[in-house]
Design a protein around this nucleic acid. Structure first.
Length: 910
RNA sequence: GGGCGUGUAGCUCAGUUGGUUAGAGCGUUACGUUGACAUCGUAAAGGUCAGUGGUUCGACUCCACUCACGCCCACCA
């Protein structure tokens, strides 16, 4: 205590206000963190070799923060802050996503309100408009990320469409093209007529609708269909090869005429056909159905595209050409009826595929697009992209939490088809391919790898934004100046660029220091809803590009739902805005409400009441600190572990150690909720409710209180960065730049002797028993009562804590004796072999007391009977481990003892 | 059609390799303004762990089936 004199006291600070006021603290604290530069791992104190890296899943650049963002920011910040405290080079790299389709659609809607279309502005004008829109709305999300307390390194911030990331994308495209993994070809794609663009398979959703099943007289067959107009594009019918009705016709060709001239139809056999559905004959439309397309490839059937990208019938649809699909269907059905080709119709429920962005029904059609071939063997690697991505998870290089999603991942990856990466929207990474107009490009060979001279994928060049081009055609020597080189008008699927996120953010393909130091990353934390969109593709692209996995662990969180388990939506008016509630209850309270009760892969129910509860808790921690600060006077950062003086001291240190050990383990194993619950229980139920109360009696605990508070603040900091940092600043900080954020977590302490915990529990139980008796007999809180405790073995312990018991249970005179008669007119209770008597005189109701004790006796008897039965079972004695048998014996002895004492009380009651 | 998950106190959920008299918070009830905190305190009531069967000395925990709810994938023309 002598060194207290040279301590710069904290008494300069005004006393802590009685309630924590987050509004007065948070922005200031965040600013001071940011100004300190400590979010940047290069500025962290000490030698930090071991990295801990998380790449922030980039929110849409034009978006606003919703509760889902708040959740991932909280979970990621928790991990990053924890590992920073553990002395690692913690890097959390933030960024935003250009979200090609989403942003494109948003701006189109804005234009629509002005009565314009993108065509009015032209491509360059439209993109300028999009960029303008992004510039204007980009600030919001940044501010909101800060509001949540996110300790991310803004100096390394990335954007999926900035220069560095554009370079990454071009380089990727070029390498994959050279390796034959990217090709241009005519295949069936999902086409959204509203977006006027292709969609990837997983960008298609299904909606159940009631529809009509039309039965058509179809040459010699009856064919059922929900899309009669597509029958104009049929080139075959399929039947089950074992179907007796049609088996003999397989291989034949016949003609049908739906009013646009004869169509040649071949009969093929395919076991996929369901004999029981409809007529058992399927009309095949290879150009407008993925399944039919595959059958057509197998059977070399011709394609006949009758629906175009504009959602209208093509010239091949004869007199229906130019009609919108619905109109064509209506007229076609009319015509069928009048020609008596429509046998009947049926109503049925079926799934309609729709665009996940705009909900418009998707039109499957064949189109010439760019694809990533996932099955092609990679030169020099001997494996396909699919194989690489499967192996990374299968061999444990990547672990997915919760584990069950690994199965989902495998299933999806195994069934993955070629990935269509070209999009017909204007905003995004333009496909880095030029076509030479002077060379005669052959439809058949164009787009094939090695067809250089006709198609050039470019990687070189500095100017990326404007669309840097090859200088001249390597085949004919023409250059762009004379307009012979034309860039592909399409852009890339937005997931193509986001799938490079873990390494593009570090500067790839440059061999940067960051890349060497921080890749692969440790954790990728995101929602399970983008497992396929994003995670799977990151694994695919990263293993290909870098030969490393993108991350070691995938932590998948669930959805935030309302208190009734419903999704939050505008129409239900059940949206909780994270910024609003952070301002109302404090960010720390919001964070806790998103951590506690949240387990990987499971949805979380959230309500304002829950947030309010954690606001109460932050205030509790504040007041615990406030009390300690007031008691200690001049607080000083503990230099080491203080010497315990009393049982309570040993108990709180033992409990603190245990909680620290367990919660550390919880965080390491991603059980954040459990860690938080443990800390809350300790803080509230042990430290505040017991140790602080005991300290008021025993006194002289300055060093202990300081130590426990300091350790506790560190443990809480990853969960509640603001309130802990503020308390630290007012209590322990040695100067302005001294942050709890970079304190040292410290090693786990050795396990303390169990007796300290057990002995203190006994004192606690005695106090609780007295309080219990007081409550039973409605003894006024203000009234002090006399209590007699009869203890035998533990008499010393009880005597040593007489004062604590007296004060905490509001006892006037506490008599402790080894044994003796029960005082007359006393209410009694037995805890851990100790008899507690509270003489209440005439208050006591003998009958009530008797029945109360009888109930206790009955309970104990039942318990004892169960134990005796168990111990009387030979099989149990023989087969159960001896320590289990021993434990049961001890329990039996304790129960017998308790029963004896209870019965004794009953006999002396009269 | 295939796969996955959930079902524990009125509500929201813990319960880690099988051994607890099955826990917490909220809510409810009773009492309470003790100088850290009413954003608080003390205490109480409340559960045949969805059901059935099995494995085991022993099942909330493991297995099978059933029921209920939820999700994902595929997609029947």
């Amino acid at each position: 205590m002598s060194d207290r004199t040279d301590h710069k006291g904290k008494s300069i600070e005004p006393e802590l206000p009685p309630a924590y006021e987050p509004q007065a603290v948070e922005d200031r604290i965040y600013r001071s963190w940011e100004e300190s530069g400590l979010f940047d791992p290069d500025n962290l104190p000490g030698q930090r070799r071991e990295p801990f890296v998380i790449m922030m899943p980039p929110p849409n650049a034009t978006g606003t923060l919703h509760i889902g963002h708040a959740m991932f920011l909280t979970l990621e910040d928790l991990m990053v802050r924890y590992h920073r405290l553990r002395g690692k080079a913690a890097l959390w790299l933030p960024g935003t996503d250009h979200a090609a389709i989403a942003t494109n659609t948003k701006v189109e809607k804005l234009l629509d309100r002005e009565g314009k279309t993108k065509y009015d502005l032209g491509r360059a004008g439209f993109i300028a408009r999009v960029e303008d829109f992004i510039r204007k709305s980009q600030g919001t999300i940044h501010k909101q990320i800060r509001k949540m307390g996110s300790s991310c390194d803004w100096s390394r911030e990335a954007y999926t469409l900035d220069e560095v990331r554009s370079r990454t994308v071009r380089e990727m495209f070029r390498r994959m093209y050279d390796d034959g993994l990217i090709y241009r070809g005519t295949r069936i794609v999902n086409w959204c007529p509203r977006c006027e663009s292709t969609l990837a398979d997983d960008e298609v959703e299904y909606r159940e609708e009631r529809g009509t099943l039309y039965y058509l007289r179809y040459g010699p067959f009856i064919v059922a269909t929900t899309r009669p107009e597509t029958k104009l594009g049929d080139t075959a019918v399929a039947v089950h090869p074992d179907d007796g009705r049609y088996r003999d016709r397989i291989g034949q060709v016949f003609q049908v005429d739906f009013g646009i001239g004869p169509q040649d139809i071949r009969v093929i056999g395919d076991p996929a056909v369901d004999r029981a559905f409809g007529s058992g004959v399927v009309g095949l439309t290879p150009a407008h159905s993925a399944v039919d397309f595959e059958m057509a490839e197998k059977n070399l059937l011709p394609l006949k595209k009758v629906i175009g990208e504009d959602g209208r019938m093509t010239a091949l649809a004869g007199k229906y050409a130019g009609l919108a699909v619905e109109e064509a269907r209506r007229r076609f059905v009319e015509d069928l009826k009048s020609r008596e080709l429509l046998q009947k119709t049926e109503e049925l429920d079926h799934n309609v595929s729709v665009c996940y962005r705009c909900g418009t029904p998707v039109e499957p059609l064949t189109s010439r697009q760019w694809f990533v071939n996932v099955d092609q063997e990679i030169p020099g690697r001997g494996k396909s992209l699919k194989r690489l991505a499967l192996e990374a998870v299968r061999d444990g290089s990547i672990r997915i939490l919760p584990e069950r999603f690994e199965k989902v991942y495998f299933h999806w990856m195994e069934n993955l088809r070629d990935w269509c990466i070209s999009r017909q929207i204007w905003f995004g990474h333009r496909i880095p391919v030029w076509y030479c107009q002077s060379c005669h490009v052959d439809e058949e060979t164009e787009g094939r790898a090695g067809a250089a001279g006709r198609v050039m994928a470019s990687r070189e060049g500095i100017v990326v934004s404007a669309g840097e081009a090859p200088l001249k055609c390597p085949t004919c020597g023409r250059d762009e100046d004379i307009g012979d080189l034309v860039q592909d008008p399409d852009t890339l699927d937005t997931w193509f660029s986001s799938s490079t996120w873990t390494f593009s953010t570090l500067g790839w393909p440059e061999e940067t220091e960051d890349l060497k130091r921080f890749h692969p990353t440790q954790v990728l934390e995101t929602g399970y809803d983008i497992l396929f969109f994003w995670i799977a593709r990151m694994i695919l692209m990263t293993t290909y590009a870098t030969g490393q996995v993108p991350f070691e662990t995938v932590y998948l969180h669930g959805l935030v739902r309302d208190e009734q388990g419903r999704k939050m939506s505008k129409s239900l008016e059940n949206i909780i805005d994270p910024i609003d509630v952070s301002e109302k209850y404090g960010t720390d309270a919001v964070r806790l409400s998103l951590i506690i009760g949240n387990t990987p892969g499971n949805d979380l129910r959230l309500s304002e009441e829950k947030i309010a509860h954690f606001r109460n808790f932050t205030n509790k921690l504040w007041n615990v600190s406030r009390y300690i600060l007031m008691t200690v006077g001049e607080v000083r950062r503990p230099s080491g572990r203080p010497e315990p003086q009393t049982l309570a001291d040993r108990w709180i240190l033992a409990r603190l150690d245990e909680v620290k050990r367990d919660s550390t383990e919880d965080i390491e194993s991603y059980s954040f909720s459990r860690a938080g619950e443990r800390l809350r229980d300790f803080t509230w139920n042990e430290l505040a409710d017991w140790y602080l109360e005991v300290s008021k009696v025993e006194g002289g605990k300055e060093r202990l209180l300081e130590y426990v508070l300091y350790e506790l603040l560190k443990l809480w900091h990853p969960f509640m960065p603001f309130v802990t940092e503020e308390i630290h600043r007012r209590a322990f900080a040695e100067g302005e730049g001294d942050f709890l954020m970079v304190a040292s977590w410290g090693d786990p302490a050795p396990v303390a002797p169990e007796s300290d915990v057990g002995d203190f529990d006994m004192v606690r139980d005695i106090i609780t028993a007295i309080r219990n008796l007081r409550a039973t007999y409605r003894v006024d809180v203000g009234r002090e009562i006399d209590v007699t405790v009869h203890a035998d073995r533990q008499i010393g312990l009880v005597k040593r804590h007489a004062e604590v018991i007296r004060r905490l249970a509001k006892v006037a005179v506490l008599t402790v004796a080894e044994g003796g008669d029960r005082p007359s007119g006393a209410a009694s209770s037995v805890v851990r072999g100790i008899r507690v008597h509270v003489p209440l005189g005439d208050i006591i109701d003998i009958e009530q007391e008797r029945s109360r004790i009888m109930t206790e006796i009955r309970k104990t008897e039942d318990y004892l009977t169960a134990l005796e039965k168990k111990l009387g079972n030979r099989a149990f004695i023989e087969r159960a481990p001896s320590e289990v048998v021993e434990a049961e014996r001890r329990k039996r002895e304790a129960a017998r003892d308790r029963l004896d004492k209870l019965q004794e009380q009953l006999t002396v009651l009269d």
